[in-house]
């Protein structure tokens, strides 16, 4: 049935399909495995970041720390990796869990600052993001760290069915995100907090604990995104996280997860990330310069938030 609710639910997927059809009509080369692989590679790190922040947005909070978090995770990963022998086939493999831990700690600090000091999450996380950028600068001294291990780079270079290995890593992580969201207590609690914090609190939920855990889980996904970003270009540096904040937040809201929390989820985010990257890729394919993308994303995010907001229930926003 084509009800308003249904329309709102399927609108993001519809937009994605329309975009693919449109770009294919303008340039048939768009519709090819090669090009889809290109879109998949570009989407992979952003998808991890966006899945992480999806959980935070589900609670009605927001996390703007990802650029700093990704920068710290990326340069620490490269540092650990080099210190442990620089090969994935050896002790270097330990750099992966170590980096995930770094992401978790960074995320937890983020959540604790927000909850314990009772600072709105957008400012707490924005500040932590700045701290993260500073930390990564301090670690690298502004230099870039090369990661050349062929085994690690095989995430990009080895393809399976036309798509590089990193795509499959991202799919596994996405499934893990879906599992957390739908099949764990903490995942359900994200929705409870986002749907109505008073109710959640009144039914005995330790809302603050849920919050901190949520930021922690988001941090783990940022760490994963950071490592995939390093795998993508073979370089870890302070600007590894550049633009990821804007892209990931846009993806989440364009995918249909409401900024007010309580509805949406990781599948919406997958659609959102694909929409954003199909637009980015499509603009290049039809010959538009890539720098138009930021402006288009800006318009997209405004439209998406506008469409997903029930304005009658809101007296004002800050």
């Amino acid at each position: 049935m084509l009800t308003q609710d249904n329309l709102q639910k399927w609108a993001p997927l519809l937009v994605l399909v329309v975009l693919v059809v449109f770009f294919t009509a303008v340039n048939p080369n768009f519709l090819s495995i090669r090009n889809f692989a290109r879109i998949a590679i570009a989407s992979t790190p952003a998808l991890m970041i966006a899945v992480g922040v999806t959980f935070v947005i589900l609670m009605g909070s927001i996390d703007l720390s990802m650029e700093g978090s990704v920068a710290v995770c990326a340069v620490l990963f490269a540092t650990f990796f080099a210190a442990l022998g620089g090969s994935l086939a050896g002790p270097g493999l330990l750099a992966v869990p170590a980096t995930l831990l770094v992401g978790a700690v960074f995320g937890a600090i983020n959540g604790l600052v927000h909850v314990k000091l009772r600072i709105p999450s957008f400012m707490a996380s924005l500040s932590m993001g700045f701290v993260g950028i500073g930390l990564s600068l301090l670690i690298t001294g502004g230099d870039r760290i090369l990661v050349e291990d062929p085994l690690f780079r095989s995430l990009l270079t080895v393809r399976l069915g036309g798509f590089p290995l990193m795509t499959y890593v991202a799919i596994v992580a996405l499934l893990a995100g879906w599992f957390i969201q739908n099949h764990t207590t903490i995942g359900r609690n994200f929705y409870a907090v986002g749907g109505g914090e008073d109710l959640a609190h009144a039914s005995g939920l330790n809302v603050n604990k849920v919050r901190v855990i949520c930021f922690l889980i988001a941090g783990v996904f940022y760490a994963l995104g950071a490592m995939l970003a390093v795998a993508q270009i073979g370089i870890a540096e302070t600007v590894t996280g550049r633009n990821l904040m804007f892209v990931s937040i846009t993806s989440v809201v364009v995918g249909g997860t409401a900024l007010w929390g309580g509805s949406g989820g990781v599948w919406n985010t997958l659609i959102g990330v694909l929409i954003v990257n199909v637009i980015g890729n499509g603009m290049v394919v039809i010959g538009l310069p890539s720098y138009v993308q930021d402006g288009v994303l800006g318009l997209l995010v405004i439209t998406a938030v506008y469409l997903s907001t029930d304005r009658r229930s809101l007296s004002f926003v800050k």
Partner: peptide, 21 residues
């Protein structure tokens, strides 16, 4: 449009960035 100011200004900032580039 009732978009919270931090998102609205972030988005408009994106547009400004594009114009600058």
């Amino acid at each position: 449009l009732k978009v919270p100011s931090f998102i609205a200004t972030l988005a408009v900032g994106g547009i400004a960035l594009s114009v600058g580039q």
